Amino acid sequence: MSQPWLVVGLGNPGPTYDGTRHNVGAMVVDELCRRAGEKLSSARAQRAETARTRIGPAGIGVPSAQAEQVVLMRSRTYMNDSGIAVRKVADFAHIRPDHVIVVHDEIDLDLGRMRLKLGGGDNGHNGLKSIRAHLRTGDFLRVRVGVGRPPGRQDAADYVLGHFSSREKPQVELQVALAADAVEAIVSTGLEQAQNRFNS
């Protein structure tokens, strides 16, 4: 049996944080659940909400011999403790770090841009820092979704906890859909082909 995948959408739990820049990763997992026709359910002992599906050449949620098993996940911890939940879910589902895909906000990329990569540092992102610490490696896949830099002298932490403006929302919806496409492509065609298609 092939190694399953874990797709982690980073964000903070609770309605207060819905639609904030820091939760764009969680928005991508929500979109993947919608496409798969699955709902996240609480895995209390794992401090996460998870759903199981398959991704293959025919798309997400379509059974086929080539389809890969995928666990979709949102943490029930706050961003700074994301690694606790990621480690619990990965251990429970026997998923190696090289089959973990973390979708997260990236202030060093403009809104509308995206980068897919394997490994690297945390670049000041507390969610990535926590995951690196708890997996004891940085060698997991990342889908970096651009949210742009804070204007003027606004603190970066305040900026990412802010909501997208009404003017930005149409572009955010498009970017979330593209990031979900990118996750599907990584699983079904591999990182290199997905990078060629989606890196911008």
Rank of each mutant, 00 (worst) to 15 (best):
G61Q: 00
K117P: 06
S75D: 11
K39L: 09
D158Y: 01
R197G: 01
I95P: 04
G19Y: 00
R142E: 05
T20Y: 13
I84V: 15
T53S: 07
L109Y: 08
G25V: 08
P57L: 00
R44L: 10
G138P: 01
Y159Q: 06
A177H: 09
G83C: 07
D139T: 01
R96H: 11
L174F: 00
A26N: 09
V147T: 13
A67S: 15
A177K: 15
A43Y: 12
G146Q: 09
I60N: 03
A93W: 14
A65G: 14
N123S: 15
R54L: 08
R197V: 01
V102N: 02
A58C: 02
N126C: 08
G11E: 05
D81F: 15
G9C: 06
N12H: 11
S130H: 08
H22A: 10
S82H: 11
V71E: 04
N126Q: 14
V29M: 03
S2I: 03
L10H: 11
T16E: 06
R76V: 13
L10G: 13
V29G: 07
K169Y: 00
N23F: 06
N12S: 06
A58H: 06
V145Y: 07
R87L: 15
A185L: 10
G120I: 05
G25S: 08
R87K: 15
R54D: 06
R47Y: 01
G152F: 02
E49F: 04
A90F: 14
S41H: 12
R197I: 01
G25Q: 12
D105S: 09
G127N: 09
R115V: 14
D110N: 14
L161V: 02
R113I: 02
V89H: 09
D122G: 02
V62G: 00
I55L: 05
L128C: 10
F92A: 15
D122Y: 11
T53N: 01
A45N: 07
L141Q: 12
L161M: 12
R44S: 11
L10E: 09
L128S: 09
L40A: 08
Q69F: 00
G112S: 05
P13F: 12
V24N: 11
S130D: 13
H22M: 10
T16M: 03
V86E: 09
R136E: 15
R87V: 03
P57V: 00
N23V: 04
R167M: 00
V103F: 10
V100A: 11
R74L: 04
E173Q: 13
V102Y: 02
V7N: 02
T137C: 08
E38H: 01
H134W: 13
V29N: 05
D18T: 14
I84L: 15
S188K: 13
F198V: 04
R76C: 14
E173N: 03
S82W: 11
C33Q: 14
A48L: 04
I55S: 02
N126L: 08
G190M: 13
H125C: 07
H163R: 15
E38Y: 00
V70E: 11
H125I: 05
T50Q: 05
S200I: 08
V71T: 14
E173C: 00
V70I: 04
D181F: 07
N23R: 08
L32Y: 09
L161K: 05
L72E: 01
D139A: 10
H104T: 12
D139G: 12
G83D: 10
P4N: 12
G19H: 07
P63H: 05
L109T: 04
D91K: 11
G14C: 10
G14K: 14
K88I: 00
V176K: 01
L111I: 11
E173A: 13
I101A: 09
